[in-house]
Amino acid sequence: MQILLIEDDQTTSDYVRQGFTEAGHVCDVLFDGSDGLFQATREHYDVIIADRMLPGLDGLSMIKALRAAGKKTPVIFLTSIGGVDDRVEGLEAGGDDYLVKPFSFSELAARVAALSRRPALVHEETVLKIQDLEMDLVRHQVSRAGQVIDLQPREFKLLEVLMRAKGRVVTRTMIIEKVWGFHFDPQTSVIETHISRLRSKIDKPFETQLLQTVRNAGYSIQIPG
């Protein structure tokens, strides 16, 4: 098995590499998130093990960029950041598993073996499109009728959530969880504010209005009919 370990702690990286080497696997080690991203996109690995706190590029950003580039290599986060929200954040960033330090090598090896046996994931869309509205997830760019639209990060994420729903209604609770996080106060008007800003950018300059408010339910991006 070919394993890529991205871990800036020398003691931990030596320990993990020795364990996998003794088990007959190849374990390449890098200490920087930027280097890890470059290596992971250039070479084939069966599993990637990554810390979250890395120099150059943090683990979450690295895995998000890896997924945006279309790489489906299984990833396990190996980190000291172990809260429930942290685990959820890691999995939502594109991680497949999450192991908190201190850890036993036998458990890490078992989890890596399990990930390597998973069937390959189906191809995930990198371009979302509804009518003439298009979102390129790799280039992080939104356009409508060929006109590039400048969105703030939260606006981009909100639009992504709505477009992935493919015309289905997305409730306020779903938006809160996916865009702001589980513990955000749902009583604030932040959703309405961002919806209004998003509508002014993707709908107002155009003839067809795609962003729909569904009374007492939520919002959706769909072609009026």
Rank of each mutant, 00 (worst) to 15 (best):
E134G: 09
A93T: 02
E89W: 02
V148R: 02
L115P: 02
G146H: 08
V84M: 11
H123L: 08
T79Y: 02
P74L: 12
I81L: 13
T79G: 07
V84K: 05
L99F: 02
R117W: 01
L115Y: 03
A109I: 00
T73Y: 10
A145T: 05
V84A: 15
M135W: 08
R139D: 13
D136G: 04
Q147I: 15
V88G: 03
V122H: 03
A145L: 12
Y98P: 04
L91A: 05
R144F: 10
A120R: 13
D86T: 10
G146R: 05
G83K: 05
Q147E: 07
I149F: 07
L99C: 09
A120S: 13
A114P: 00
D136N: 12
R144L: 14
I130A: 06
A69Y: 02
P74G: 09
L91I: 15
L121E: 11
A145D: 04
D97L: 00
S80F: 12
E125H: 06
T126H: 07
P74T: 06
V142W: 12
H140F: 09
Q131A: 15
K129I: 15
S116E: 14
Q141I: 09
R117A: 13
D96Y: 11
H123E: 15
F77P: 02
I149K: 02
D132V: 14
V148H: 00
L133Q: 02
T73A: 06
H140L: 13
K101F: 10
V112W: 04
L108N: 11
